[in-house]
Design a protein around this nucleic acid. Sequence first.
RNA 1: GCGGGCGUGGUGGAAUGGUAGACACGCUGGCCUUAGGAGCCAGUGGGCGAGAGCCCGUGCGCGUUCGAAUCGCGCCGCCCGCACCA
Length: 842
Amino acid sequence: MIASSHVARGTIFEMRRYNPSEIEPRWEAIWEQEEAFRAVEEEDGRRRFYKLHMFPYPSGDLHMGHAEAFAISDIIARYRWMQGHNVLHPIGWDGFGLPAENAAIKRGIHPKEWTYRNIEDQGRTFRSYGMSFDWTRTFATCDPEYYRWTQWVFLKLYEKGLAFRKLAPANWCPKDQTVLANEQVIQGRCERCGTPVVRKDLTQWFFKITDYADRLLDDMELLEWSDRVLTLQRNWIGRSYGAEVTFEIAETGEKIPVFTTRPDTLWGVTFFAFAPEHPMLGRLAEAGGTSAAVKELQDRLQRIGAAERDEALSREGLALGVHAVNPVNGEKVACFVAPYVLMEYGTGAIMGVPGHDQRDFEFAREHGLEIRVVIQPPGQDVAPDQLAEAWPHEGVMVNSGPFDGTPSPESIDAVTRWLEKEGKGRAATSYRLRDWLISRQRYWGAPIPIIYCPSCGEVAVPEQDLPVLLPDDVDFSPHGESPLAKHEGFVQVACPRCGEAAKRETDTMDTFVDSSWYFLRYTSPHDDQEAWSRESVDRWLPVDTYSGGIEHAILHLLYSRFVIKVLYDLGYLGFVEPFTTLVNQGMVLYGGEAMSKTRGNLIELGPTIQKWGADTIRLTVMFASPVQDDVDWATVSVSGVHKWLGRVWRAVFAAAEAGSGSRGGFGTAGDGDAAAPAGDELRRLAHRTVKAVTADYERIGFNVAISKMMSLTNELQRALDGGVRGEAAREAAEKLVLLLAPMAPHIAEELWHEALGHTDLVSKAPWPTWDEGLAKVQEVVMVVQVDGRVRDRINVAADATEEECRGLALASQRIKKFLGGREPIQVIVRAPKLVNLVTLAD
RNA sequence: GCGGGCGUGGUGGAAUGGUAGACACGCUGGCCUUAGGAGCCAGUGGGCGAGAGCCCGUGCGCGUUCGAAUCGCGCCGCCCGCACCA
């Protein structure tokens, strides 16, 4: 018994105005009191449904972007409750991260205080938005009770050899004396001070995600995600098939492999090039007598950023004075150092084929190197000096010794097999994906649980010593190394193995590590014995529907998939993909631009709810466009939706009153027979609407679902005005309220109790059903076409046969007029909707 | 350059290969009201017509089909991602 003051049927109805500011807080309090949306851990025969939305970053309060995203999540969760599922719909916060630190530096308050204050604000706004979260399971990733287990996950990867340190170039701002994440480098400059960023080599921690490249690609077939996101991930991993071919340096005898996707162009190699960071370069330059010039080039590159390097150096290069021997024909070609060769991809060295690669072509032109045609476009005979650009496409091999005449694409396999047989190379696969750099020289993150001992070396913090607590009293302004490095109490530690004085790792983890496993923790959020209970995780996971912004299409989703696969391999989980279905919502724009604080066009959610009510906002963002499309808040009509809710309010109260008097049954009119057919029609419409709207909920077509509910509202009111009374009116009103409940839960509860007199929560009420017979249309408008043009419309019974339709169409006076005596040469009948009379021969 | 997506009224958007523009916003006219960010009614793709109605119309072109916004091919334009990835 929840309703405090529901009005019994048959009493005098008091027609109140729709007043969301009075209704909404009341129902929010009731849901919370009743723990209406608490996921049930025990087995109770219901299907479990895990609805997750990407947890928010606690910077400031919620804005309209959150309004759109979380409305989708909440509607799905509430719909599943009404479908009789046991729903897990949790919320937490991605608490660590740079913005907290920067905001804190700017405002002079501690990141912790700033973060937890924002979490509190956001939580309050979520409640006033009517979110059906299970509030008993909430946490933030910056809680020590949480990051303890993030550190534990790190240790599991470390034990498996998947977390390791290596020297790697980082983005370094010389002014701020700090390492920057890629996202903080805007066009080669520091996002904060505008100083050009330089490369600096630092020893940093990585996760070996590259080991999982194939599985991350191949398991995509298990996912119901949009092609868009899957393609983004596929491109990001960037798997290429080809061959590794070993060249030999003529002067030193050193062997150096290169990766190529086009082994069929091997006879077109006219030069060889190394990346400027290639480790062999020093020795080769020495052998070639070019050490000074090479050193000068390397130093210059070191000083400038990656972006500038791309533009300024384009096809620059320097001959090393040594030669590489092409294994297929024994030719010696000149070796270069060239900045367009990347150390990070393949082997850091390339074979140069100017005839068939545009970059090699431009390089050859620049340096006066030979251009050779070894793949002839089909049916053509192109001489090298006729080439205006490289020919990277398919063709027939020429000037290629034993392979002359071999057509691509078979030529690639043929040459690869030959290389393997001759011991000159082998089939190989290369990836664009790099290992995941997780070190951050920052304060506000989870400390990496590693200790460096002078005797024992790198030692993992024992599990029972977790968490490695982040100290509060730290000077977190940037100084070029982690702020933790200056905190003696943190750094100094006894070696867990030998007890000697040792030092802690002072870098913290990338926040993407925190968010790569948080969805597991919701299943047992307060467990202080283990990160998650295997039993509980197996019950709830994988997530049934995961929703969130497209901006996380690559990093967060890829990292989570990777971590889950590792944990599966280690036996901690029983599934390989965390998120079965993914829904990406569009952005909320303002005047065609993304909302942002700096632009000053950020519409906050809290005040907007104050003004219109949560239900109106939820419906407005859902009605404005399909969920995956953007919404421009500058052009939406909040008042249109608000007015509709007013009509729903009045119609449902009126219907309840009209339905309370006579209980005579469906279609019975209170005042006269005239309304009986209208009541019958209303009833059919109600059933038809339930069927259609249910399908819309299933496919997440919320904008269309709303339009159908609007139509039902309009017809209900019209029917009431036309004198419809009794069950027909009441049933239509009930079904409307039930259909509306996931989207506008507050007004739905109020009407369910106050107008319709129920005592249970509509939020947990069974989803409305429909009668197929009633939902079926009785009479339809049949379109009669002559030669594909609509010439008449005839009302026919929905079950009219093909023969009946044909007869009606041919009997039509209008159609006779259009036929003008001609006999149709063909009659297409699609009973009962369409007849097409064809008179034209083609 | 490569990959993906998208082009429908003044606007947001509907439309299992079968009535294009549902449902709204906006606008126009009218009614009601002391008043209203209220309510109600009618109209609203373009052209022609007094009207019944006719013609045109989903970026452009070609095609498949009795029939195309929808399927295929070729353009044009816009958006997003990656970008010297060998």
